[in-house]
């Protein structure tokens, strides 16, 4: 029931977002910029573009590609933004360099997804001294001084693990099912938090995690580790993979071992990228908790509010849906990523 409601709200939200986009692009034909944009949130002068510098982690996964797409599609000139986008190729020093050049350029807002959690204080203090507000997306920074950034927009990874675990406990409690876990990159926030959330949620049920190994968020390693698990254990009932890609690799390994994924071995994953949703609709995965990459609209809204001097929430949790097989079949035709 609660899930249904959430799904409703998210659908409504994305519908409004689409409408807004549609409205903006229809105004594109207007001859000059000063007549366009009736947006009330554009407090400063109305027709002035907000210059925003965004430093992305990289392009390491399908999820990240969808995230980049969302940001580039939302922060457009028609929406009142002048986006300066840079790709850090998974390196912190590249991000720090990008941010300091944004400070030098004197952009209105800086936004970034930190590659790692620590080591950001000096550069963020520089931004603060220059009076440039900073917004974090997707990943957080670990700092004692939370005045260094205005807001953090992103999913709650612990909650994602919990949603996966709760569904598993609800479905399989009482059967004595054995679970193997394919972890994300060792030490990364999503891997730590999803493992934690899942473990918390199945505590009290008779589900048991019998083995857990890293598959580095990739298909190849997900498949290899699953092959090892299948050689090692005879009694695997459930696979919990920290992302779709590893789950898709596990499907290959399970099929090669002569079993039917989704039936002989149940599969639960997180992310809900297109290939994962397709596998869910095909019955090869049993449940997917979404990790929503479409952060562009939220970022646009917060950036405008910050520039307008309105108070913003320090932590904005992006609502994540969850899909079972029927929901996937229903949702698949309209998925944007």
């Amino acid at each position: 029931m609660a899930r249904k409601m959430m799904r409703g709200t998210v659908a409504a939200l994305s519908a409004t977002a689409l409408l807004a986009l549609g409205a903006c692009s229809s105004e594109q034909a207007a001859p000059s910029t000063d007549t366009s944009n009736g947006d009330e949130q554009m407090a400063e002068g109305g027709d002035e573009l907000i210059s925003i510098g965004f430093s992305q982690v990289g392009a390491e996964s399908g999820w990240r590609a969808a995230n980049t797409q969302s940001i580039q599609d939302t922060l457009t000139e028609e929406n009142g933004f002048d986006l300066n986008f840079s790709d850090a190729q998974q390196k912190q020093e590249n991000q720090i360099q990008a941010i300091s050049s944004y400070i030098a350029q004197g952009v209105d807002v800086i936004a970034f997804s930190p590659v790692v959690e620590t080591g950001w204080d000096p550069i963020l203090q520089e931004a603060k001294a220059a009076g440039i507000p900073v917004i974090l997306t997707d990943r957080a920074v670990d700092s004692d001084d939370d005045t260094l950034y205005e807001s953090f927009i992103g999913s709650d990874f612990v909650l994602e693990g919990e949603m996966a675990g709760e569904w598993a406990a609800e479905q399989y409690d009482g059967e004595g099912f054995k679970v193997v876990e394919l972890q994300g990159t060792t030490g990364s926030a999503p891997a730590i938090d999803r493992q934690q959330g899942f473990a918390d949620a199945i505590a009290g049920s008779d589900l048991e995690v019998i083995d857990s190994q890293t598959g580095n968020f990739t298909r190849t390693e997900g498949k290899q580790v699953m092959e090892g698990f299948l050689q090692k254990h005879d009694d695997i009932d459930v696979v919990f993979a920290h992302n779709d890609d590893m789950g898709l690799g596990a499907i290959e390994a399970i099929e090669a071992a002569g079993m039917v994924p989704g039936e002989d071995i149940q599969i639960i994953t997180i992310d809900a990228v297109k290939d994962g949703m397709q596998a869910l609709a095909d019955g090869k995965i049993n449940y997917i908790v979404e990790c929503n990459p479409l952060l562009g609209p939220d970022l646009a809204e917060i950036a405008k509010a910050v520039i307008a001097g309105e108070p913003v929430e320090k932590r904005i949790v992006v609502e994540d849906e969850a899909f079972d097989q029927e929901a996937a079949i229903a949702a698949l035709p309209d998925r944007q990523y």
Binding site: R219, D245, L248, G249, E252
Partner: peptide
């Protein structure tokens, strides 16, 4: 062989 193994071309990780 690696691409065919998982039927996916992952430019970053392959």
């Amino acid at each position: 062989i690696l691409a065919s193994n998982v039927m996916a071309a992952d430019a970053n990780n392959a």
